[in-house]
Amino acid sequence: MTSHRQPAVFAGHGSPMYALEPNRFTDAWAALGKTLKRPDAILVISAHWVTRGTWVTAMKNPKTIHDFGGFPQALFDIQYPAPGSPALADRVQELLDVPVVLEENEWGIDHGAWSVLKYLYPDADVPVVQLSLDGSISASEHYHLAKQLQPLRDENILILSSGNIVHNLRTIHWQEDAKPYPWAKDFNAFFISMMQANRHEPLIEWEKYGQAAHMSIPTPEHYWPAIYTLALQRDDERANVFVDGIEMSSISMLGFTVQ
């Protein structure tokens, strides 16, 4: 990686409770934050903002969104008061070859973003902009869209994608140290092997991998953010795993960077 280029980061964000209960995954996010050159702003692609079309937050002071239910009040009390960046929102609109809605009122920083950012940048002093996931387009189209964001990395913008490679809520075991399902381990290992071999096409066309893929990705919104980080990889860069593991039997906590 050139000295001035920001890496692109994918974090498996897991349970919202990690924002209250640090563990080895949140420790890895915090450690990563200490190694990163301070960015001028952060562009986040979160699994928790799926829209019709492509939207980007453009407000000066985004609110902290608690987009979940059934958790302790302490989780709803968490605030991540990072400023926004209307200038970055305009730049994203300029780079993308699709219409982009500049969203100034309804969204903000959702838990897919702040649960990780809380550890990466605990002072909430780096401006944050979120880019939505267009729920109507394919993984291949998301990959194409993400490639258009590459210039931002040379403009000191950190691009953080947040989701989970394996994310099957219907098969979760809530107890600690739950044994991973074989299919979850299988697909997680397949993803890592293809990523490290710089073979993106099998990961874009993940459905072709078969039952393990379909069990791991019953809906694609948590998987798509990883496609963004892959697409941001340059020819002179490698993908590096900074944390891995499967929690609650069917949630992959894999995190990786390209740099």
Rank of each mutant, 00 (worst) to 15 (best):
L117Q: 01
L117A: 03
L117E: 01
K118Y: 13
Y119E: 03
Y119L: 02
L120W: 06
L120F: 06
Y121T: 09
P122F: 02
A124W: 00
A124Q: 03
D125Y: 03
V126H: 02
V128E: 02
V128R: 03
V128C: 08
V128I: 15
V129P: 01
L131W: 05
S132Q: 02
G135I: 05
I137P: 01
S138G: 03
A139T: 15
E141Q: 14
H142F: 08
Y143I: 10
Y143L: 09
Y143D: 05
H144Y: 08
L145E: 05
A146M: 11
Q148N: 07
P151G: 08
R153C: 07
D154C: 06
N156R: 14
I157H: 05
I159W: 06
S162L: 00
S162V: 01
I165A: 06
V166S: 00
V166W: 00
V166Q: 00
H167W: 12
L169Q: 04
R170K: 03
T171L: 12
I172D: 03
Q175R: 05
D177C: 05
A178H: 10
A178F: 07
K179W: 04
K179I: 13
Y181D: 07
P182S: 09
P182N: 10
P182K: 09
W183L: 12
K185N: 04
F187S: 03
N188V: 04
N188A: 12
F190D: 13
F191N: 05
F191M: 04
I192C: 08
S193R: 14
M195T: 09
M195V: 11
Q196R: 15
Q196C: 09
N198S: 15
R199Q: 15
E201K: 08
L203N: 04
E205L: 09
K208T: 04
G210H: 06
Q211V: 15
Q211Y: 11
A212Y: 09
M215Q: 14
S216Y: 10
E221G: 11
H222N: 06
Y223H: 09
W224V: 14
W224L: 13
P225K: 00
A226L: 08
A226K: 07
T229Y: 04
L232H: 12
